[in-house]
Design a protein around this nucleic acid. Structure first.
Lengths: 228, 228
DNA sequence: GTCTATAGTCGGATAGAC
DNA sequence: GTCTATCCGACTATAGAC
């Protein structure tokens, strides 16, 4: 967790709330909703057990609050590239180079967020669990960020390839390209193991980004295979 | 699930054991180790609660047995393509077309197994949870299948690109290519949502495979970007 | 708003009959 | 090998003092 407290409310209530949410993201991400106990949640947040029913109505309310917090957090880190990409997409006659530039910027930012999470703040476990058993919290996450990342990438790739944006094929293509990044998060244990790494350092993330650019360039270059 | 139980004991013990393992894969995959209760495990398997400590020494033993069962099962479904790929890789002067053919065969088989799981047998939740919190069971899964899939793909791609196989770059590249498939399993909820699908039918899986081939061909074609 | 103490529930494992 | 009954520990939530 990085930022300073956003809202310093009346007394210590807001502080407790916030602390509890940030801890809850870690704990729920690590153990899952059922296995995470209110004792662990309260203990790690350094607050009293009874604060959970008091502030959030119960364990489930805290869970929802955590999902909302993640959506807001990632959204804020993506906002700048979202705006760049939106601007380029709105201009009817954006050049190929410009389309590629914002696509790379979008994927780079996404890769940084996705790969570096869990070396400090750990929302990814939370998100992965919601992928496995989508519930109320999945809606909050999907509507907030996932949809926009997918949508923007698909629009950019469609323009670059000159193919229709709303086809299933284009959506599949876009999902696959995002999968090239997400593998390092969702299959992190296997990826690190395979690479003989213990964790992702900055230069390793740069390698990932470099290979990604190479492969995205190849895909949108529309080179007919083995034309050589 | 296909394979027979490894150790068929005296009476109905083997049947109970097997049933318990297959159910356990579903239940652990759905709820996770901690949240899955022995009562649920026994009930869904239609066996007595006390059978779990009896046959597996406890909940943890059943979990390990389930991991081994998954590794064996996937291994057996991949065996044929593993052998094909191994043969091609051993022949020093395998042509480009042949290398591509076995790479596609490998990825196709992998895609089928990965995407169709969970419409019947559900080992993917189990595997994903081990990715999040790698434990004893992760070793069983990694050593068994993951390592071979990654290794074979990397070897084939390295040959096709004429790049060294053991470099981090090649491993990253291979992981990314596999990520194109795995996104449909690990990010299934978001993918289905984005595509407006409820589930993966045969023709949808064919679409995924077709796009994957296209993109793999583009990547290994070594086309310099924007040469056009 | 925060704490301690406790009520009420459900978990895993075992004992011992069959 | 399989069952029923039971123990004991851990969990969530609440009551009520401060």
């Amino acid at each position: 967790m990085s930022g300073a407290a956003a809202a310093p409310p009346s007394r210590r209530g807001g502080e407790t709330r916030r602390h509890l949410i940030e801890t809850a993201i870690d704990v729920f991400g690590e153990y899952g909703f059922e296995a995470a106990t209110t004792r662990t949640l309260a203990e790690r947040a350094g607050v009293n057990l009874a604060a959970i029913p008091y502030h959030f109505g119960g364990k489930a309310g805290l869970y929802r609050a955590a999902a909302q917090y993640i959506a807001d957090h990632v959204e804020s880190r993506m906002r700048s590239v979202f705006e760049q990409a939106g601007a380029v997409l709105r201009s009817e006659r954006a050049g190929r180079a410009e389309l590629l530039r914002v696509l790379h910027a979008l994927l780079d930012t996404f890769a940084t967020i996705v790969v570096t999470s869990n070396e400090g703040d750990n929302w990814s476990g939370f998100v992965m669990r919601e992928q496995m058993r989508p519930g109320e919290a999945f809606e909050i996450l999907y509507q907030g960020v996932m949809q926009r990342v997918h949508g923007m990438c698909a629009a950019l790739i469609a323009r670059l390839l000159g193919e229709p944006e709303e086809d299933a094929k284009m959506k599949v293509r876009t999902l696959m390209i995002l999968g090239q990044i997400l593998i390092f998060r969702m299959g992190r244990a296997a990826a690190l193991r395979r690479l003989g790494w213990k964790r992702f350092t900055d230069d390793r993330i740069d390698l990932v980004k470099a290979v990604m650019r190479e492969q995205v360039d190849a895909i949108v270059a529309r080179a007919t295979p083995q034309q050589s």
